[in-house]
Write a protein that binds this DNA or RNA. Sequence first.
DNA 1: GCTGAGCGG
Length: 98
Amino acid sequence: MSSKLYVGNLPYSVTDDSLRSNFSEYGAVASAKVMTDRETGRSKGFGFVEMGTEAEAQSAIDGLNGQSVDGRSIVVNVSRPKEAGSTGGGYRSGAGRY
DNA sequence: GCTGAGCGG
């Protein structure tokens, strides 16, 4: 399931609805969650968006990754990318596959 | 009405 997208470097103006709207353009958004600080109530600057399918997720990445939003380049990538190579250390094989 | 780590629960 690589339909989970990690969105980082987001402006504090972005909210769950904003992410959903932005990702909704590229596909069906299963769930959009912006990590807003519970204590201060401000956005942490990153969020998570889960698409219906991986294709839509990749489409959203290809469309929103590295794009300038609010004058800042946002980062859109699959949640917890699997770094191929090294054995052990990091994430275990299973989730994360292009 | 601001600032800035980046993978939530």
